[in-house]
């Protein structure tokens, strides 16, 4: 079981003038094992902050996050993260980027390379194992970043707008590949995006957050099998519904 339980999580950032910005307030959410959920919401609603709290990179001001009934107190390789910015270590070859987490665990080189090769193969970049990140395109870099997170065999994969910087075509292809990886590895995925289209295409449930201070406004279950047809009427209908929800809450501000 790799469920994530978010209970009454709030986050306040201190400002320079002494007051605070309340980014999140009273967020309650349960994420099931092997579930794929997307966090969407108007910009500034704290979806990235929520993801970073789950990762342990930020500490919640109130409430708690537990993964497998263990409280999150700090970053841990059991919760893999893929960042929006390119985060590969440019001084390491692709293979040693993927093997980084295993190296930190003290796994011997041969063994960690075997594991890294496996995940590199899974994202289809075996032929780039000895390349440096600067030799890769944006989409390839994010695929390596995903392989790097998976190589640690995390319970949960946290993704912060990982395809945000990619062009539309690459983005669609990456979404397809991510679903393939998800089906193969059976990870729980929490995916932050500002693209509703992406959320409808990918997730089991879409979590719509309200504007700041962010809290769960609406949960939309998407029961369809995959791969999904973006051009279908029902797809467009759900997308329209979510977009309107975000729009209205933003205008109500």
């Amino acid at each position: 079981m790799s469920g994530v339980r978010i209970a009454n999580v709030g986050k306040a950032f201190p400002k320079e003038d002494g007051t605070v910005t309340q980014a999140l307030e009273g967020v309650n959410l349960e994420i099931g094992d092997t579930e794929f959920i997307c966090l969407v919401g108007p910009s500034g609603c704290g979806k990235t902050t929520l993801l970073r709290i789950i990762a342990g990179l930020e500490t919640a001001t109130t409430g708690s996050v537990t993964v497998d009934d263990r409280a999150v107190t700090g970053p841990d390789p059991k919760r893999g993260m893929v960042f929006q910015e390119y985060s590969l270590f440019p001084w390491r070859r692709v293979i040693d980027n993927v093997a980084f987490g295993l190296e930190m665990k003290g796994v011997p080189r041969e063994e960690r390379w075997r594991t890294a090769d496996h995940y590199l193969d899974m994202v289809g970049l075996s032929q780039f194992r000895d390349a440096y990140p600067f030799e890769l395109s944006g989409g390839m870099r994010q695929r390596v970043a995903i392989a790097r997170a998976l190589a640690n065999d995390p319970d949960v994969l946290l993704m912060d707008e990982p395809f945000g910087a990619l062009d539309a075509q690459t983005r669609n292809r990456m979404q397809k590949e991510l679903l393939f990886l998800w089906e193969q590895t059976k990870k729980t995925i929490v995916f932050v995006t500002h693209s509703v289209d992406e959320a409808v295409y990918l997730s089991d449930r879409i979590i719509v957050l309200s504007p700041r201070p962010g809290s769960v406004q609406e949960i939309i279950v998407i029961p369809w099998s995959r791969p999904r047809d973006r051009t279908s009427a029902e797809f467009a209908e759900v997308r329209r519904k979510v977009l309107r929800m975000i729009d209205e809450s933003e205008n109500a501000q």
Binding site: R79, F83, S87, G101, M104
Partner: peptide, 21 residues
Amino acid sequence: VFVEAGKVLGCDSSFELIRYV
């Protein structure tokens, strides 16, 4: 982002973050 990537990938001390990142 490099430092944070190091942290989520298992660098759990300042020494490791300095040495490897």
